[in-house]
Write a protein that binds this DNA or RNA. Structure first.
Lengths: 331, 331
DNA sequence: CTGTTAGCGCATTCAG
DNA sequence: CTGAATGCGCTAACAG
């Protein structure tokens, strides 16, 4: 008396096998890619399966495969529209490749550890991290367990951990050049560089190029790269006519601050952001900004994941994704 | 020769048992809530576990429990900031209660079916749906399989399917009253009511109350409740001095349209939105709107899930969450 | 191509 | 309180 006695319970391969008059192994083969089953039996099995509403239990399967098609997405700062978009693209890409994304918000510092730790219980096939502060030690632990990790736009190199990074250097450089082209002389960059790898690098490239062009940019630090900090910083801004914001989320705040501030009409401040969030294109902002191709980043991240699943010992890799300047009205 | 021969592989309860000098059953009990293990042996087991980096394999566990602590989140329209926030809150709530959210974007109509179908392979403990067009038939299938579903702000009653719904009637009513209070005489409501349950109900309540107050509202239909449609509709708006937008996402578009449109300054149009997305509070908008308590909705949805897990035969329930009017500058 | 056998890692009877 | 045995649902090896 195995299963099949309780009709309300989910059908198992055993039930299907009986109904189709074959063995369980054959049922299994029928639902395994690259199987080898004769067309007729496969037909029978499919028929029986449909009648019984049978579905392969992936959990049981992964017990054998030692791998679960589950992939963790660790994310912080979902209030930033760019993050939301990123998560969306990653989830879509994952699903389209037959992975199941398990979403882990990691906002409150310590929780990231706990949450990633949980993943270890699920035999995940990999982890995608787009949180600002990647917990380096945990990354190591995953690597040790042979679980692929890829960092998106974050963090310095870690052995066995791959990264997808957008071209921050180009963004910073082009931002400086564009602002100067537009006639700006007093450059500044707004960024919370201590919390974000990307911010740090964009800022550095901007400053370097600004110097080259003969206008040493001022660095205006903020606590977090968000709207509120942008707004506050925007109010205090002075003696500046060209500003690079490390991200659009903050840039929107700056624009709102400038809007209500008396400005010299002959010397409007030129502004460039980064990310091309939806709001950047809203009429109230018309923000000139760098577009990050979320969809491409997502699919490249997954490529890295897959290739490392095949060979966990691979040396860590970094792929650079291009940014493109979207010119609107602020510069 | 069971496991334990390959040191690089993950430790199993077998390994821990050996190292601690106890049986596998005891190890199991040590990591099972409400176990009954003597403090000393529990201590030994924990020590061994730590040394070996042992983690319970939840996948194997769920094979026995017939349940996996995995919960699906089905979502569409993540470009709407409100949706993003909703997903974030749900994911946080889920994780804090020791569930694992698996995120399923369901944008392209048909994909919702396919994607939900996949969930059936994972023995999920439940499904939370916040997509605009809930696939009624699939809901039924889940119900049949005894998998709890809760719809958030969506859909008409389905047997065995619970719902968390924000107080759309009050929102619609208060919107009408508030606009009139502010001196509006020509009311209108902007909504794509065919795609959204919530829109339909807010619209109806608004119209009803408007009639009561002696100003029959005009209903302006749009295709989708998004920024672009708001922008377009805003441009065409005429002969209106009080507008209720079914959601903030669209309301932002309306505001942007009105901003660039010559308006009679003595008869500015009063505007009320719904959701209180982050942008509503941005200085460029200052949108008066109804706040939906995402966090409360999330936790109530999970409560429903849990109670139905305990008793799948429960009659379907509906919980109503309150909305609160946040007054800013547009009304 | 198909059936048989032997586990994947764990929790749960049932004895002791 | 603890250990031995059984099986959750499935697939990988090996015959045939």
């Amino acid at each position: 008396m195995r299963s099949s006695d309780n009709p309300s319970r989910k059908a198992t391969s055993f039930d299907v096998a009986r109904q189709a008059g074959v063995s369980r192994a054959t049922v299994s083969r029928t639902f395994t890619p690259n199987a080898s089953v004769s067309p007729e039996t496969r037909e029978k099995v499919h028929k029986a399966a449909k009648e019984l509403g049978y579905r392969v239990n992936y959990l049981a399967r992964s017990l054998i495969n030692r791998r679960s098609d589950l992939v963790g997405i660790v994310v912080a700062g979902m209030d930033n529209p760019f993050r939301a978009q990123q998560v969306h693209e990653i989830a879509k890409a994952l699903v389209s490749r037959n992975f199941r994304p398990i979403l882990l918000p990691a906002d409150q510092g310590e929780s990231a550890d706990h949450v990633m730790d949980q993943l270890l219980h699920y035999n995940v096939s990999g982890v995608l991290v787009t949180s600002d502060a990647p917990p380096t030690e945990l990354c190591r632990e995953f690597a040790v367990h042979g679980i692929p990790i890829v960092l998106i736009n974050k963090g310095d190199p870690i052995p066995l951990v791959d990264r997808v990074i957008s071209d921050n250097a180009t963004a910073g450089r082009v931002a400086a050049e564009t602002l100067v082209e537009c006639g700006a002389k007093q450059l500044a960059v707004l960024s919370a560089s201590h919390v974000s790898y990307a911010a740090r690098h964009r800022e550095a490239a901007f400053v370097a190029r600004g110097m080259d062009l003969g206008c040493a940019p001022r660095v205006v630090p903020v606590l977090i790269n968000d709207y509120q900090n942008g707004l506050a910083a925007g109010r205090d801004l002075d003696g500046i006519d060209g500003l690079f914001c490390i991200n659009d989320y903050m840039a929107c705040g700056v624009i709102d601050a400038l809007r209500t501030k008396p400005q010299d009409p002959k010397n409007r401040i030129r502004l460039i952001g980064h990310d091309d969030i939806g709001q950047a294109a809203w009429q109230a902002y018309g923000l000139t900004t760098f577009r990050q191709p979320c969809d491409i980043q997502a699919s490249q991240a997954i490529d890295l994941l897959i290739s490392r699943m095949a060979d966990p010992e691979l040396e860590e890799r970094t792929v650079l994704t291009p940014v493109t300047l979207v010119r609107r009205v602020t510069a």
